[in-house]
C-alpha cells in the first residue's frame, strides 16, 4: 500500500489538524518547526513559518505541540526543521526531547548527509544527486528515503516533475528502502501520478494552505482525496 505523508506547520491547531489528516488516511505526519530563514521552502511554507514564529512557535512550544499531537494520533511523527534550530538547542538534547514528545524520526532540510551522524533522520536525495550519494543516503536514512522530485523549493506546481521517474529509477537501483516523493505534489491527480512511480507521496504546501483556509474539516476532505487517488494506484490489500 502506498503511503501518504502530510506536512503541517507547528501551531495551536496542529493536534486537531493532525487528527483530521490521520482520520482521512494519512500514514505519517511531518511537523514543521519554523525557522526564520528556510532555504528549501517556497512562499507558502515560508509564510506559514513566519506566522508560526509570530505566534510564538519557538522550539519549546513546538515540542509541546508535538507532544499534544502525539496524544491525538498513532502514526509516525517527524519534526522537519533546519540546522540552526538544532545548533541552538543541541543535537542530542533536541533528539531526546523530541523523541520523548513522540517523534519517531527527523528531517533536517539543510543538514548534509555526512553531518551529525548521532541524529538518525530521513535523508533527502534530489534529481542532481549522483548514484554514490544516493547509495550513501539510503544506507544512512532512517526508515525511508525522501525523494525531492524536482530541482527547486517546496510548493505546488502545474505537473509532477519529469525528473521524478529518473530519480526513482536511480534510487531503486541502489536501495530497497521505501521511496516517498515530495516537492511539487498538490492535486489528487499528481498524487496518483507520483505514487505510480514511488512508494508514497509527501504533501506540504497545499496541505498547509488548506489547513489555513478551510480548517480541520477541509484538511480531512483534502487528505481523503489524496488517499483515494493514491489507493487507485495500489488498492489496499486486505
Amino acid at each position: 500500500m502506498k503511503r501518504v505523508s502530510i506536512y503541517l506547520m507547528a501551531g495551536r491547531d496542529t493536534p486537531e489538524l493532525a487528527a483530521a489528516a490521520v482520520a482521512a488516511g494519512a500514514d505519517l505526519l511531518e511537523i514543521g518547526f519554523p525557522f526564520s530563514d528556510p532555504l528549501a521552502d517556497g512562499p507558502v511554507i515560508r509564510l506559514a513559518g513566519e506566522r508560526a514564529l509570530a505566534e510564538g512557535m519557538r522550539t519549546e512550544a513546538c515540542l509541546e505541540c508535538l507532544a499534544e499531537t502525539r496524544a491525538r494520533v498513532d502514526v509516525p511523527l517527524i519534526p522537519m526543521t533546519y540546522a540552526s534550530i538544532l545548533e541552538a538547542y543541541g543535537y542530542d538534547r533536541f533528539r531526546e526531547a523530541a523523541v520523548s514528545a513522540g517523534a519517531t524520526s527527523f528531517i533536517v532540510a539543510d543538514l548534509p548527509l555526512e553531518a551529525a551522524p548521532e541524529l538518525p533522520r530521513v535523508q533527502l536525495v534530489a534529481p542532481t544527486t549522483p548514484e554514490e550519494r544516493i547509495r550513501l543516503a539510503a544506507e544512512r536514512t532512517d526508515g525511508w528515503l525522501y525523494l525531492v522530485s524536482l530541482t527547486g523549493t517546496t510548493g505546488a506546481r502545474e505537473n509532477v516533475s519529469s525528473q521524478l521517474a529518473g530519480l526513482v529509477e536511480r534510487a531503486r537501483a541502489v536501495t530497497e528502502a521505501p521511496l516517498l516523493a515530495g516537492f511539487g505534489i498538490s492535486t489528487p491527480e499528481q498524487a496518483a501520478a507520483a505514487a505510480e512511480l514511488a512508494d508514497g507521496i509527501v504533501v506540504g504546501s497545499r496541505a498547509v494552505e488548506v489547513a489555513e483556509t478551510e480548517g480541520a474539516s477541509g484538511l480531512e476532505r483534502y487528505v481523503a482525496s489524496l488517499r483515494r487517488a493514491v489507493d487507485t494506484v495500489s488498492p489496499a490489500v486486505a
Binding site: 532540510a109 555526512e114 549522483p130 527547486g152
Partner: peptide, 25 residues
C-alpha cells in the same frame, strides 16, 4: 570529495545546504 571533510575553519564553515545543491558545490 565529501562535504564535511573539507571547508572548515576550526568549527566554522561547512556546507549546510539542501541536498540539491551539494553536487553543484
Amino acid at each position: 570529495m565529501t562535504s564535511l571533510d573539507t571547508g572548515y575553519f576550526g568549527p566554522y564553515g561547512g556546507r549546510y545546504v539542501p541536498e540539491t545543491l551539494v553536487p553543484a558545490l
